[in-house]
Simulated assay, not measured.
Amino acid sequence: MIESILKRYPKERRFLLAILQDIQRTYNYLPRKALNEVREYLDIPLSSLYSMATFYRALSLKPKGKYVIRVCDGTACHIRGSMNLLEEIKRELSLLPGEITPDGKFSLETVNCLGSCAIAPVMMINERVYGNLKPDMLKEIFSSLGGEENG
């Protein structure tokens, strides 16, 4: 699969970010094997890959869940109860920020802003935004994704 991604790009360093983004979309993180293949393909040091992978927050060296939950903890969301959402996620999925569920279904991150202050508190699951949230709404949202209570 990595080979098919690499074949879409010329062997030029300027395509590195695009290649890493495609790998991230495919695997939901950047596997070491993939980084080694990119290193060989572009003939660049592995340190350059790690430098880029750790600089961009959208890239991850750690596996993420099938559903990546991002809870906004910016000012508007914090004031309107984002911490209560995090507590409910902990109850429902036994999940803390930076963790992934044992089945690999969910991972949780907190972010500084999702740019949706008018509908705070807000969370995003993959590319979908959920606003005006209350903790009692989360169980139904997770169930709609095929999630079940883990705890």
Rank of each mutant, 00 (worst) to 15 (best):
N84G: 11
S94Y: 05
M124N: 12
E127F: 11
E99K: 12
P121V: 05
N132L: 06
E88I: 11
R80T: 03
S94L: 02
N112D: 14
C117V: 02
L96P: 00
V122M: 08
R91H: 12
M124L: 11
P97T: 02
L108R: 04
K134G: 02
L93Y: 04
E127A: 12
D103P: 11
L133C: 07
N112W: 14
M83A: 10
N84I: 00
S94Q: 13
E92I: 10
T101W: 08
G115C: 10
A120K: 00
K105Q: 15
G104H: 10
N84A: 14
E109L: 13
E99L: 04
I89P: 02
I119S: 14
E88G: 05
R80S: 14
E88W: 01
L95P: 10
V129E: 13
G115M: 11
E87A: 15
V122K: 08
L86M: 13
K134C: 02
D103N: 15
N84F: 13
G104Y: 07
T101P: 09
N84C: 03
K105W: 00
P102E: 14
K134I: 10
G131W: 01
M123E: 05
K105R: 15
N126R: 08
M83L: 11
M123R: 03
L95A: 06
M83G: 04
P97V: 01
L95N: 04
I100W: 00
Y130I: 07
G98V: 02
K105I: 15
M83P: 00
